[in-house]
Design a protein around this nucleic acid. Structure first.
Length: 830
RNA sequence: GGGCGCUUAGCUCAGCUGGCUAGAGCAUCUCGUUUACACCGAGGAGGUCGAGGGUUCGAGUCCCCCAGCGCCCACCA
């Protein structure tokens, strides 16, 4: 055995042997209790990042622990086709502006090719972490089986009236050329200009000057007090009293004519100049106006703002499209038509200024909605889309009762069918659901599950759901489904659903734990809960474990621009996968940020090496030892102490892992191995030898540590030839295996307890420490003595020097004398 | 604006339902070339647990309030 553990020559080989042996394959005919985790499928075109690494480490620990405690485990791997993200990357890759430049089929071919290539990369990277995944069951969110599941649930939802097509205000990503769900919109801080301009007698505030180009009502608050005033040139001005009185310029230039309530203004009509020419305006009142904000009046863009749209619906207003789906102004924008929104905004402002319509402008901090994938601006637009109605009642086929999808989601957590770790996120979950609106599921992109709806020649819906041979006159809906739609089926679509008799589905569904980053609680977890309960009648898992964001060692977000990013593959290369796993798992709390720096990783690398060297020592001790299969007896006090301590620690570790408290389990193992086993037991065992017992305990330690650091433990298991020792004592129901891997051993459940030995050994430890301290003190004394002697010598020499005593300032000489006396005094006392 | 969380040694964090003489890793200081390991061993220094108030025999742990930091949601014409 080498002096230092070499992870590079070990890990890939071991993983390959696990894979080749079939040890990671789950058996759906097993009588054992199942334990199932659906792997959150990484984006097929992505690469492994630290979030994945943390996820893989946590889930692998759960899986290995459960397997060692007698469960039939299944960890289903797979990848996600990541609709918008992939389509974006492919477009960039092909160096084309939009997909219309090629045929749909050709574009999809390119996507498939690209995804296929990238698939191999991510899947290879997942293996690097040591993940005990059943690769024979690998799935893909965009393969045929998953498409079948998608079509099936779509049809069922449609028949229940829960999927509807509606002409509603949606989030339009100009970059992705598609609608986005509410959750896919991100908000970025931005600097813009706030304009106040004249619209007839009214002052209107806006940052979106480009939309102020069409006939429109001016909305005022019905009960707020407005002031009508006039200036020297006869120009009229109507603003709230509050605004008027707070504005010195207005107060100076305008003379009040009267004060009226907002509703008295209703019905007023006038023509006014806009940046796009003269337009018709009229006044209406609505409580939507905040009388304390700005001038107390606004004009509305019925088709480009969610609130305005609502208002338009309520008041039966015309819907006027001012911006097209490419993000350019329509003809109605007059001088700005054809311009990009951003440019039109500036231009419209300039025109307002030229036409002397501008009253005031000032810098304004606002937040800009952007597409979470393409990073481009999101425009609220009006468009026909498919929605999932979350508040609509339907008859639940499993209970026969009326309910809504929202209720099913709420019940999941409220009635404790699903537990979220950490608890705080349950509140976040409820809050999200309470404010949940219908989920827009259609996307205008090509890479994704095509909406299974066919239209006849009249444009009426001909059929919905899986359609094997559509009539030639029919056309399929051109849109695809939100990528999260297929992800939401993942826990059961990977197990054979909709075939409820599929062996995997019967054995492994519902699954047990869904572990993922807290950032996709809404995108994914909530929707799995919704579809899972809706489609299968049971919730798809009983526990949701959320890990936090991996940050740099100071808790700062890792980013390219900050240059503080860490690539997990570099970490694995430099320190090994075990060290990477431990550093992502120990010293962390669920849901909390996971700070990671090199010093932490190298610390766990050191631990791994410590294990290695303990193993090396034990191998040296046990060379030529007979292979006694009987359980060795503890002999010495140290033997009994470590055995008793091991019983205690093994229990604690199991208890923690049972509760998914991985960090605490890791901490206990770390300190038991290093502080108790290595620093005390091994040292004591050198005095009173019992090599067979030493080796036995070490073997148990390897089992205990295996879920957390599978590579080093497996390697030592092999090096120390533990495997042959346990042949014949292992359960026989796992088929033919080349080797007895550690993961097939039973997790230690030792019973040996010797309280007296523990106490006695502790006394011995205390005594040893006292002696060491005394020795250290003695050494310290000796050193202090030497230091004093040297100081005395130097001080005396200085005082003997006539030049010094004669010429140096008297107080310095006094001080020297004093120092000498003190030093002599101190030395005398020693 | 609403919600959630965090604030404990120089740094990053444990401390679960109140009993702590407050722990760990890293960093730091002293000593150590003892045949598992310097990716090591032994010993040490370092904290009035963010500020203030309260409940209690007892509070890092519970309550109130304040401050700073972080995250999520809503997005005001």
């Amino acid at each position: 055995m080498e002096k230092n553990y070499d992870h590079l020559s070990t890990e890939d080989k071991l993983y390959a042997s696990w894979e080749a042996s079939g040890v990671m394959r789950a058996n759906n005919t097993s009588k054992k209790e199942p334990f199932t985790i659906p792997l959150p499928p990484p984006n097929v075109t992505g690469h492994l990042h630290l979030g994945h690494a943390a996820m893989l480490a946590i889930e692998d620990i759960m899986i290995r622990f459960k397997k060692m405690t007698g469960h039939e485990v299944l960890w289903v791997p797979g990848t996600d086709h990541a609709a918008i993200a992939t389509e974006n990357v492919v477009l960039k890759h092909l160096k084309i502006q939009n997909r219309e430049e090629m045929t749909r089929e050709n574009f999809l071919k390119e996507c498939r090719k690209f995804a296929g290539e990238k698939h191999d990369r991510i899947v290879h990277q997942i293996r690097k972490m040591g993940a005990h995944l059943d690769w024979s069951r690998e799935a893909y969110t965009f393969d045929e089986a998953r498409n079948h599941a998608v079509n099936t649930i779509f049809k069922r939802l449609y028949d229940d009236g829960l999927i509807v097509r509606g002409h509603r205000m949606i989030n339009w990503s100009v970059g992705a050329q598609s609608v986005l769900s509410d959750d896919e919109v991100q908000w970025e801080d931005g600097e813009t200009i706030f304009y106040e301009f004249w619209c007839g007698p009214f002052l209107i505030g806006t940052v979106r000057t480009e939309t102020k180009c069409a006939d429109s009502p001016v909305v005022v608050h019905p009960t707020a007090k407005y002031i009508r005033a006039q200036n020297a040139e006869g120009k009229e001005c109507i603003v709230t009293e509050k605004y008027f009185k707070g504005h010195t310029k207005l107060k100076k230039d305008f003379k009040i004519i009267e004060t009226v309530q907002g509703k008295k203004l209703v019905g007023m009509e006038f023509e006014a100049e806009t940046y796009a020419g003269k337009r018709k305006f009229w006044v209406m009142a609505d409580n939507i106006i905040d009388p304390d904000f700005g001038t107390g009046a606004m004009t509305i863009s019925t088709a480009h703002d969610p609130h305005d749209f609502e208002l338009a619906q309520a008041h039966g207003l015309d819907l006027i499209q001012k911006i097209d789906f490419k993000g350019r102004m329509t003809d109605i924008a007059g001088p700005c038509s054809g311009m990009l929104v951003k440019d039109a905004r500036k231009k419209a402002g300039e025109i307002l200024e030229e036409k002397n319509l501008l009253f005031e402008k000032r810098p304004y901090a606002n937040r800009i909605p952007v597409c979470y994938r393409s990073g481009t601006v999101v425009e609220p637009m009006l468009s026909p889309q498919w929605f999932i109605s979350v508040d609509k009642e339907f008859k639940d086929q499993f209970t026969g009762k009326k309910t809504t999808l929202k209720k099913l989601m709420q019940e999941a957590v409220r009635d404790k069918h699903v537990q979220i770790i950490p608890r705080q996120f349950e509140k976040v979950y409820f809050h999200w659901i309470d404010n949940l609106r219908d989920w827009c599921i259609s996307r205008q992109i090509w890479w994704g599950h095509r909406i299974p709806v066919w239209y006849d020649e009249k444009g009426e819906i001909a059929t919905v759901g899986e359609t094997k041979d559509p009539k030639s006159s029919w056309t399929q809906d051109p849109d695809t489904l939100d990528t999260w739609f297929s992800s939401a089926l993942w826990p059961f679509s990977t197990l054979g659903w909709p075939d409820e008799n599929a062996e995997d589905y019967r054995k492994f569904y519902p699954t047990d734990v869904l572990e993922t980053g807290h950032d996709i609680l809404f995108f994914w977890v909530a929707r799995m809960i919704m579809f899972g309960r809706y489609a299968t009648g049971v919730y798809p898992f009983h526990t949701v474990y959320l890990h936090g964001l991996v940050t740099d060692e100071h808790g700062k977000k890792m980013s390219k621009s900050a240059g503080n990013g860490i690539d997990p593959l570099d970490v694995i290369e430099k320190y090994g996968a075990d060290a990477a796993r431990l550093s992502l798992v120990v010293g962390t709390s669920p849901g909390q940020p996971i700070p990671l720096g090199e010093s932490k990783i190298s610390g766990y690398r050191n631990f791994v090496n410590k294990l290695w060297n303990a193993g090396r020592f034990i191998q040296m001790q046990t060379v030529g030892t007979s292979r006694d299969l009987s359980l060795p007896e503890p002999k010495s006090l140290a033997d009994r102490w470590i055995a008793s301590r091991f019983t205690h620690v093994a229990k604690e570790v199991a208890k923690h892992l049972e509760k998914y408290e991985i960090s605490l389990a890791g901490d206990k193992i770390y300190h038991f191995v290093w502080d108790e086993f290595c620093n005390w037991y091994i040292e004591e065992s050198k005095k009173e030898k019992n090599p067979v017992f030493l080796k036995h305990i070490f073997g148990e330690i390897l089992k205990l540590s295996h879920p957390l650091c599978p590579f080093i433990t497996e390697k030592l298991w092999e090096e120390l030839e533990f495997a042959p020792l346990c042949k014949g004592r292992c359960p026989k129901d796992r088929g033919v295996l080349e080797r007895e891997f550690l993961v097939l051993q039973n997790f230690p459940t030792p019973t040996f307890k010797d309280k007296k030995a523990e106490e006695e050994f502790q006394k011995m430890q205390a005594e040893t420490i006292r002696v060491r301290q005394a020795q250290a003190d003695k050494q310290a004394d000796k050193k202090e003595k030497a230091r004093l002697e040297q100081a005395i010598f130097a001080l005396e020499a200085r005082l003997k020097n006539k030049g010094y005593t004669d010429k140096a300032p008297a107080h310095l000489v006094e001080q020297t004398k004093k120092e000498l006396e003190e030093a002599k005094e101190k030395l005398k006392k020693m």
